[in-house]
Design a protein around this nucleic acid. Structure first.
Length: 585
RNA sequence: CGGGGCGUGGCGCAGUCCGGUAGCGCACCUGGUUUGGGACCAGGGAGCCGGAGGUUCAAAUCCUCUCGCCCCGACCA
């Protein structure tokens, strides 16, 4: 591809609306343009990267024995009504009507569509196990699209669904996908951390996310360095310190606490540590108020609570509801005095001795509150957020927190869709059974952003060979017709080697071309300039070599051998040309 | 959805307080000189200042409404 004929609108300055490196670089290197909030245009260079990732995903899915489909993106409401998700999906699902007022959704995911399709395609246990997938656009009306392609309203996802006879089969399908995912991300040049995760609105049990460590990540992960425990903060557990509180139990007392509402206020007022307090928060779960009680030093994990309550809708109660159920203004709620609404306690609360909590009366708190004496714990579970330093639930050592970008998610769905949509096969006893499902997603666009987050410097992107838009960036610095002809010959030689090459034949200064090459980040840079015109030396340089000045000057013969080796490396899924480069001379 | 910020040639911005004929840098076009890390000179094209309404002799600038975009939060009582 000759750059003089290509569309490569590089930018020297950061676009004003980009805040993370990958977004800035994708704009600056001419990979994408914004269409509107959360929607992006892939320019030719960006689309090439997207296709490379898609191809890797496809190759590995096919290798794992999955079958590729292409599903409609507009899905009939009936499908969603069958599974019950028409009502539970919420506003992130974009719904539209056609001219006949028939309702549709722009699919945010395809469990229903695939379950329905498979239902009509299979009828015997002999057809199982089955894994079907597609690489297609998804639509989600995100609360807040951000960070460019990282979180957008429209994105390309590889989604796969497995169907098995029983749980053992599902386990096997799940493990196959686990391995496949590791291969996919490795081939993309990404280092991922698999972590335990919540299953979200898809429903199901066992689940693992593939995260790319990045400060820019939207998820927080708890990671144990002493063992292999890694979990999304949404579901991370932690060991509670076996504290022996030797205080003797005191009698409950009412204390005037004028306008002392927050835990911070209370700590100052009572001059004691935050874990003395029973923080009592009112939520609305499926239209019913619920109180959650945790130690004052802890944050409530709303997702754990929501899951514990099996609530579909769940949110913090507005002030008027708090006032109504506690008979006091916000800030003075507590679980004592025969509190009438359902109250869920964190498992640490029972350890609190002589605690302090709201009195459900304006400007009053109780002190010396004790479980078993002043209130009873009927509902208890883990409803707090694990934080840095908390003890690993597996080995008891302190954990650390890292941020991560979720690029893939695999989980066991169970029977939710096959039962709701009545997908059955006959087993060997001629009995109808519901297959059990697994579900496996990869965010393709986000993977690009994650790769860039992991591979860049102040000059630009540093692509891994496997997903680089081109393999070789050829820079011609000739002026005369003769010199240009020499560079053209090298260009032809690279094409003939089977490598993908972008040839900078523009009339521009060398500095301009070098800077553009560094920004775009093609792994192998070849320069035809002075040393070729005078000594027949071709200059080869790697984008990701430690030393920017590390240039090899080689003869055309050796260059042709290098091209062959490089092609071979790429065909064998190599991701770095460093070893080849080191051997050059 | 709440709070904050921003909309001015393709991109990045100034001008807005304090109304008076729209400007800078980059990019683009023409010609010339240049050419190993974002060259220079000269000339040129391109914006009804997000949109609508209002105030005024006069509005990018003031007022009202609206649309779009970005950031923060969705807050822990």
């Amino acid at each position: 591809m000759r750059l003089s004929r290509y569309i490569l609108p590089t930018m020297k300055e950061d676009p004003s609306d980009a805040v993370i490196v990958s977004h800035k670089l994708m704009m600056r290197a001419g990979l994408i343009r914004k269409e509107s909030a959360g929607m992006y245009i892939y320019l030719p260079l960006g689309f090439r990267v997207l296709r490379k990732i898609i191809n890797i995903v496809r190759e590995e899915m096919d290798r794992a024995g999955a079958f590729e489909f292409l599903m409609p993106e507009l899905t009939n409401a009936d499908l969603w009504k069958e599974s019950g998700r028409w009502d539970t999906m919420g506003p992130e699902m974009i719904r539209i009507k056609d001219r006949n007022s028939i309702e549709y959704a722009l699919a945010p995911t395809h469990e229903e569509a695939f379950t329905s399709a498979v239902r009509s395609l299979i009828s015997s246990y002999r057809d199982l196990p089955l894994n079907v997938y597609q690489i297609n656009t998804k639509f989600r009306d995100e609360i807040r699209p951000r960070f460019g392609v990282m979180r957008s309203k429209e994105f390309i996802m590889k989604d796969a669904y497995s169907f098995d006879i029983d749980e053992a089969g599902l386990e096997e399908s799940y493990q196959t996908m686990r391995k496949t995912y590791r291969r996919i991300f490795e081939r993309c040049g990404l280092e991922t951390i698999p972590v335990q995760a919540d299953t979200g609105s898809m429903g199901g049990s066992n689940s693992e996310e593939f995260m790319v460590a990045s400060e820019v990540g939207e998820e927080a992960l708890l990671i144990c360095k002493s063992c292999d425990y890694k979990a999304n903060q949404e579901r991370a557990e932690y060991l509670r310190a076996p504290e022996k509180n030797t205080e003797s139990i005191q009698k409950i007392e009412t204390v005037d606490t004028p306008n002392v509402r927050t835990i911070d206020d209370l700590v100052k007022f009572f001059n004691c540590s935050a874990d003395k307090f029973l923080k009592s928060i009112i939520y609305i779960a499926d239209n019913k108020p619920v109180m959650a009680v945790v130690p004052g030093s802890r944050e409530i994990n709303e997702l754990k609570l929501k899951n514990y309550l099996s609530a579909k809708e769940f949110e913090l109660a507005p002030n008027n509801v708090v006032e109504e159920v506690t008979a006091a203004p916000v800030g003075f709620a507590g679980p004592v005095n025969d509190f009438k609404i359902r109250t869920v306690f964190d498992i640490s609360v029972k350890e609190i001795v002589n605690g302090i909590t709201g009195a459900n009366i304006a400007d009053k708190h109780f002190k010396n509150v004790n479980p078993g004496h002043d209130f009873n714990i009927k509902d208890e579970t883990d409803i707090t957020i694990a934080v840095e330093g908390d003890m690993c639930p597996k080995c008891g050592k302190p954990m650390i927190v890292k941020r991560g970008i979720e690029v893939g998610h695999i989980f066991k769905l169970g029977y939710k869709y096959t039962k709701a949509m009545n997908l059955t096969v006959l087993n060997e006893n001629s009995k109808e059974i519901h297959p059990i499902m697994g579900c496996y997603g990869i965010g393709v666009n986000r993977t690009i952003a994650a790769v860039i987050e992991q591979n860049n410097d102040d000059r630009g992107i540093k692509w891994p060979l496997s997903i680089s838009p081109f393999h070789v960036h050829l820079i011609g610095l000739g002026k005369s017709g003769e010199e240009i002809k020499m560079a053209d010959e090298i260009y032809s030689a690279i094409i003939d080697s089977g490598l993908e090459v972008i040839y900078d034949d523009r009339k521009a200064s060398p500095g301009f071309k070098f800077a553009d090459a560094d920004l775009v980040g093609i792994p192998v840079k070849v320069t035809i300039g002075k040393s070729y015109f005078t000594n027949k030396e071709i200059e080869v340089k790697l984008r990701n070599s430690k030393d920017m000045k590390d240039i090899k000057k080689i003869s055309k013969e050796n260059f042709l051998i290098f091209l062959k080796d490089l092609k071979n490396l790429i065909d064998n899924e190599g991701n770095s040309a460093i070893e080849l480069f080191e051997k050059l001379n």
